[in-house]
């Protein structure tokens, strides 16, 4: 074990580089969103948590400040139409039972949560209505109809603080998610924490590493010009380290989602956020 030689040089290198998050304030349609707050007590090695917005270029940041410029809103509009569309054997639309989508204000901040002993996400709740209450087919986890609807429902909580339950019934799921977060996987043998906890604020090739927060999901990405689900993003990060991703909607990713949501406690919901 020999570590001395590079430390001095590394410190010098880091000091000279444009590191860390910026100081910009996120105002969306006149409302100020909280993109930085004290880390929750369960996080040992991080003092302050930041939204991924703080690590993006000013051009990308600007797209999220005005709903007219936010490309994610185009998809939200399709969900508004979908809301009134009758589908399935029961001849019902979402609006047949849910008077106003605005009634879902606050829901995003509490998910995932435990219902009847099972960890459920927004996607699960929507599909439960579709299959059990409408007699319609479940939507695919990361496909357009689902991400549009999770964006519309998430938007009702925009500006509200993330506040998931991690104790009681949620504890075993949370523990599992935490373990996954710190477990190295893939041919490159890395854990989420290696990038998003140990190295946020620095450049990894062309990307400015953030804390990997999920308060803005689904996110509109310039890279693929569509809304991206939380599990879709997890999948992408796993593939980048040459790891076989867990299944979207599976127990592992749901647990990881709960754990990540808890690492963002207090940050404002930004749905739909814009990232590169």
């Amino acid at each position: 074990m020999k570590i001395a030689p590079w430390i001095a040089i590394a410190a010098f290198g880091f000091a000279g580089a444009a590191v860390a998050q910026d100081d910009n304030t996120l105002n969306v349609e006149g409302e100020t969103l909280l993109t930085e707050t004290a880390a929750p007590a369960h996080m040992d090695s991080v003092d302050t948590i930041y939204s991924g917005w703080r690590f993006r270029s000013s051009e990308t940041q600007a797209l999220q400040t005005d709903d007219f410029d936010n490309p994610g809103m185009i998809f939200v509009d399709t969900a508004i139409e979908q809301w009134d569309k009758v589908d399935g054997s029961e001849g019902k639309a979402c609006s047949s039972c849910h008077e106003d989508v605005a009634d879902f204000a606050g829901l995003r901040t509490k998910l995932p949560r435990v219902d009847n002993g099972e960890l459920v996400t927004m996607e699960n709740l929507i599909n439960e209505c579709r299959t059990d209450r409408m007699g319609a087919e479940a939507w695919k986890w990361s496909k357009g109809k689902m991400t549009a609807m999770t964006a519309l429902i998430g938007l009702q909580s925009r500006g509200m603080a993330m506040d998931v339950a991690t104790e009681g019934e949620a504890a075993p799921f949370w523990e599992k998610g935490k373990e996954l977060y710190y477990t190295r996987v893939g041919q490159l043998d890395m854990a989420c924490s290696n990038c998003h906890e140990d190295n946020y604020g620095v450049m990894i090739r062309a990307d400015h590493l953030s804390q990997g927060q999920i308060n803005g999901f689904p996110t509109y990405r310039l890279k693929n010009a569509k809304l991206n689900s939380i599990h879709g993003r997890f999948k992408g990060c796993m593939k980048n380290i040459r790891a076989t991703p867990f299944a979207e909607g599976g127990d592992e990713f749901k647990a990881l989602e709960l754990y990540l949501a808890s690492r963002g406690q207090g940050l404002s919901v930004e749905t739909p956020s814009v990232r590169n």
């Binding site: 893939g186 041919q187 043998d189 040459r242 790891a243």
Partner: peptide
Amino acid sequence: MMFEGTIMPAFYIDSGYTRPLDDFAGQ
């Protein structure tokens, strides 16, 4: 072997990592 717990990948190992994508398994 030099820097314990480093993020830097081991470039010449073909086992000891978990869940590799099929295309890279054993390589």
